[in-house]
Amino acid sequence: MEELIRKSYPVAQADYVSAGHASADIKRTLKQLGVGGDVLRRVAVASYEVELNLVIHSLGGELTLRVLPDQVELISADCGPGIPDISMAMREGFSTANDEARSLGFGAGMGLPNMKRNADTFDIQSTVGVGTTITMGFALPS
């Protein structure tokens, strides 16, 4: 299907100062395209959570926004370290975040469940030592 917009944002490990800038730009971009209301809020929440996850947990990665005629897609791909037990990571309250993340109000073990709750489709693939890819889809009203 024809891709209307594709934007990629590099996200650095432990860059707490910039964390959220990609999500703010994603939100602005979608708003300019006329995406609003519930879909915009769900994309914004999920993208902020996934961006923070890249900062807190990954060795660095990239967040990509794709806009298709019928849906918005967010793809987060990192270069490790990978998640040993995905079902554990998906549980509310389970977290391996460090004290720095917790002191900023994150690392409560809500990130992945929040993404899943907000996205219409959610897929997570992870290989320890290789990396994690999360793909989320948000249906656009026709």
């Binding site: 100062v17 964390a19 959220g20 809020r41 929440v45 900023l104 109000g105 409560a108 990130g111 709750r117």
Partner: peptide
């Protein structure tokens, strides 16, 4: 806990917090 806020809150809600870092605003 900003993750809890992101999970449950909508735009009609006022946020009461003791946290004053940039992520509260983001």
């Amino acid at each position: 806990l900003m993750s809890d806020v992101l999970a449950f809150v909508d735009e009609k809600t006022v946020l009461i917090t003791g946290l004053t870092n940039p992520h509260v605003v983001r």
